[in-house]
Design a protein around this nucleic acid. Structure first.
Lengths: 223, 223
DNA sequence: GAACCGATTTTGATTAATCAAAATTAAATC
DNA sequence: GATTTAATTTTGATTAATCAAAATCGGTTC
């Protein structure tokens, strides 16, 4: 029984939700799930019970939900398709990185294994999509490495942008126009708790100040 | 209100069904519709009534159904996507012409206008897909020209294969291996009503005999 | 014209996915 | 410990799409 697009979306949301949990936590709460999927809370409860029934998730009433290994496998497949499609649309179809999310959101549910693997090959078995999000392997392994954000990385030290964790088109265009895309090198000059601001030194020593909320969406590694 | 994949499939089936009607006929019978869509006859009736309700089709009880101009517009859009995707999968993704149908069947419902038009451009605004089926324009115009089949074309006269009206993979592979793909030139040497056979002269004067049913699926034009 | 037959329509049910609103629970506050 | 609150679950309905099987229709056949 192959999963419907709806089920795939639930699995993906739980999978991604799990990776974002504070250390130690292991259950994604219903409220969060409902909100990222844009559905009523009661709907999430009903659906998650069905997922548990079919062995894809473990459901603890009032606590939340996590995936079984079967569920994780399926979720990784969907995420693999999504991220490969995003990269394909940018690299091969020449689309902008801020306009590929919605297409990938649809395509992830319908592309055949044959086509996905051909795309993977055409792209040279890439490890990350245009936003730096890691692409699960065909076997369902996801290499999530722990990264600093611009709120946690050391000051006055060159770092390389590795990942942008927001799909909003306007935000992505801002990132691009300020040379903050994955691969580019920057440095945090100062953080101010009170004003909630982070001051950066970018390419050509350009200075810019962004809010803490935005800074937390830029993941970096030492460079 | 954008149409569901199901509705798109009904529209496409009616649209294609209309073009295959004997001259003078204008209604697609429910039975045929149900059979090409692989659904129960009663389901077709119910759905077609709903299509009529929403102004996409005209339904005459016990006689059949045809599209309104609004329905035709939508159907042409779906067909355009399907055929452009087939050609894209062959030309750009390097897939074989006998393996692209199922992927295109899914993709036709989800690719965005932006992506479709980019593909159209990348392919140089093509007029036909790999099977020779004409691609409707973005405005919904379909250039269906009347063609002979190998059962109706003149004998002992060179003709060019223009279109293969069967998506069966085994059949397509047969066509390919015998050099009968669209664009290739052949000649009908003889037809025999009794044995139901058609004898052809192909590339390098190769002789072959095919059945009338197969011959009717090869559309040709004078060359 | 009566009887039959194949195609079509109706009927009654089912499944997946959803919502709004009422009921309940767990945890936090007093 | 009683009360309030926020999250969650339950309930009752709805919509889209489907089926099987019974009923009906339209057009031959006798």
């Amino acid at each position: 029984m192959l999963p419907s697009s709806t089920v795939e979306n639930y699995l993906k949301a739980i999978y991604v939700g799990e990776t974002q949990l504070a250390n130690g936590q292991k259950l994604v709460p219903m409220g969060q799930l409902a909100s990222v999927l844009g559905i009523a809370p009661g709907t999430a409860t009903t659906m998650v019970k069905a997922l548990a029934e079919s062995g894809l998730a473990v459901y603890e009433p009032y606590n939340g939900v996590r995936l079984t290994s079967a569920g994780e496998k399926l979720a990784a497949r969907v995420l693999r398709r999504h991220r490969l499609m995003e990269l394909f649309l940018v690299q091969v179809m020449g689309m902008r990185w801020d306009e590929v999310h919605d297409d990938a959101e649809q395509l992830e549910h319908v592309v055949s294994d044959r086509l996905v693997e051909r795309i993977d090959e055409m792209l040279g078995h890439p490890e990350a999509d245009p936003h730096g999000d890691p692409i699960p392997t065909a076997e369902g392994k996801l290499a999530e490495r722990p990264l600093d954000t611009l709120l946690t990385c050391p000051l006055h030290t060159p770092v390389t942008v590795a990942r942008v964790t927001d799909q909003d088109a306007a935000f992505l265009r801002f990132i691009e126009s300020h040379h903050l895309k994955p691969g580019q090198t920057i440095e945090v000059e100062a953080r101010d708790e009170v004003s909630d601001a982070v001051r950066l030194k970018g390419r050509d020593d350009a200075r810019m100040t962004i809010g803490a909320r935005a800074a937390s969406k830029l993941l970096v590694k030492a460079s």
